[in-house]
Design a protein around this nucleic acid. Structure first.
Length: 474
RNA sequence: GGCGCUAUCGUCUAGCCUGAUCUAGGACGUCACCCUCUCACGGUGAAGACACGGGUUUAAAUCCCGUUAGCGCUACCA
């Protein structure tokens, strides 16, 4: 049974990169009939916040990612909050201590800093020199007397290590060039990330760890630790990182790429997942649009690329537009109405709105654009090009429109045709000169759905009002 | 600085493992045209890339080495 996990720390809102990691884990598990576990890494008490923990669950759910085990879905390997697993970590630290695989280290943080600084100046690898391992009983007693609290460090015994990465292939490390004995428990008694991750991955029976490339260099530590504790390490796969439009690394502070923001801008979750999956993964044929179900069927870890990529908001818009277009009118109305309600952008008569919504299905790329489009229901919308409506040519068109209107059956789409036919002989304008004034008068916008669809929805009263209003401009 | 990862159109990518079918395919974006008595939607087309330098080979985007660049790690953050 394949078991994967997504293990965020609740120190900010989830962004595109986080979600991609979660998504790839999820898709991989689903495809193989495995389990997806959510674990919250909140060992950093300073920066972790409950508010972010909540947000992160909501955002994942919104995206369509459901966990088989995790907060709120208790399984047999819980608890799934690291802050509730402290005794477990402690017991493993004790065991490593007893077995002599780790030791209490009385070197202070300041000393460590100093030694790395020096190493750097001398162009040696900037690493801890393991001095704490060799302190005499007397030195330790002295330091204790000075009130120094020890950390616990893991002893690196065998520095040569090679691993097979699911995405990168063979990777070799020589730990001597990289690091010395590393801290697994802080002076305040709390476990470090490395210890907690290893204990949890082992105890939660995680088989595949798919995470960001920023952890690739941490992996040797994890393999060593796991082996020292008597566990078989999981298979690792390291995903390349995503960068922002300017090529900058993604950060939790960057609002433009936070999930919250995408939600607010009115993206359709399966489309967002589709677009995110295309970042670093491709099916191999030229297909690009996948439903949520299809994605789970075709996703393949082996087809993930190794190079970092830049997120392109334009492409996301396009993918989203494609998804919207393939929705049924019913679904489109349901989804878009839900969006408008959530963001309180429904200041108009709801029945009227529901009738109008399908008209926009082929025109918008995300729900947020509906806000503007719906302004045509308002009596007081503004005109994108007011000057055009003031030209004598436009006035002539509007005047004629008012004259023919009463004799037209406006309730049907065919009414629009009749309207145009009646109008044409009365005015000089044709083509764009004829239709742009009408479009502007009716909708206020230069772009939008076909006029023949709007026509019957507005109906006689509204049509008349709108033409009159546009005509009164000067 | 040390170590590691990466390198195909502006962007996302296919091709690379298993060299010849690649005068490098698709998509977004851009531009042009078509559809539509208007704009958008849709359709067709154009411009646009193998980072650089060496090797190996009859043959290299594809294999090897080096250079350069970007990114990551180098925390008692995760």
């Amino acid at each position: 049974m394949i078991r994967v996990r997504f293990a965020p720390s609740p120190t900010g809102f989830l962004h595109l990169g986080n979600v991609r990691t979660a998504l790839f884990n999820y898709l991989f598990a689903k495809r193989q009939g495995g389990k997806f576990i959510l674990r919250i890494e909140d060992t950093d008490r300073e920066r972790s916040r409950e508010e972010y923990r909540q947000a992160l669950s909501e955002d994942l759910l919104w995206t369509g990612i459901r966990w088989d085990e995790g907060p709120g879905v208790e399984g047999e390997y819980g608890p799934y909050l690291q802050s509730e697993r402290l005794e477990i970590y402690q017991s493993y630290v004790n065991r490593l201590l007893d077995q002599g695989k780790a030791y209490a280290c009385y070197v202070t943080e300041a000393e460590t800093e100093e030694m790395k600084h020096l190493a750097r100046l001398e162009k040696r690898p900037p690493r801890f020199d393991n001095r704490g391992r060799f302190f005499t009983a007397q030195e330790i007693a002295e330091r204790k007397a000075r009130g120094i609290k020890p950390t616990v460090r893991f002893k690196i015994e065998n520095p040569m290590l090679r691993m097979h990465d699911l995405i990168r292939g063979e990777v070799k490390f020589n730990l001597d060039d990289m690091m010395g004995d590393f801290v697994i428990q802080r002076a305040d008694g709390s476990p470090t990330f490395h210890l907690a991750v290893c204990v949890d991955d082992a105890l939660m029976k995680i088989t595949h760890v798919i995470r960001g490339e920023d952890h690739l260099s941490n992996t040797p530590k994890h393999i060593l630790l796991l082996e020292a504790m008597g566990f078989k390490p999981p298979q690792y796969g390291h995903l390349s990182l995503i960068h922002g439009p300017g090529g900058e690394p993604l950060s939790k502070r960057l609002e433009a790429v936070s999930l919250r923001e995408f939600r607010k801008r009115g993206y359709f979750p399966p489309a967002l997942a589709n677009a995110i999956a295309l970042l670093g993964w491709s099916p191999g044929d030229n297909r690009e649009i996948f439903t949520w179900q299809e994605l789970q069927q075709v996703f393949d870890l082996a087809r993930i690329g190794k190079s970092a990529s830049i997120f392109d908001p334009h492409k996301l818009d396009w993918v989203n537009g494609q998804h919207l277009r393939s929705l049924s009118d019913q679904d489109f109305v349901r989804l878009s109405a839900a969006y408008l309600k959530e963001y309180k952008k429904l200041p108009f008569d709801e029945k009227q709105v529901l009738k109008l919504l399908p008209v926009f299905k082929d025109n918008i790329e995300r729900f947020e654009q509906l806000t503007e489009r719906l302004e045509i229901l308002s009596e007081e919308f503004s005109y994108e090009d007011e000057a055009l409506l003031k030209t004598p040519q436009a006035k002539e068109v509007l005047q004629a429109a008012l004259e023919v209107l009463p004799s037209i059956p406006t309730a049907a789409e065919s009414g629009y045709e009749a309207f145009v036919n009646a109008l044409k002989p009365k005015v000089k304008a044709t083509g764009k000169n004829l239709f742009m004034p009408i479009r502007l008068a009716l909708t206020g916008k230069e772009h939008g759905p076909e006029l023949k669809r709007i026509f019957p929805i507005l109906a006689f009263e509204n049509l008349k009002k709108r033409f009159e209003r546009a005509l009164s401009l000067n």
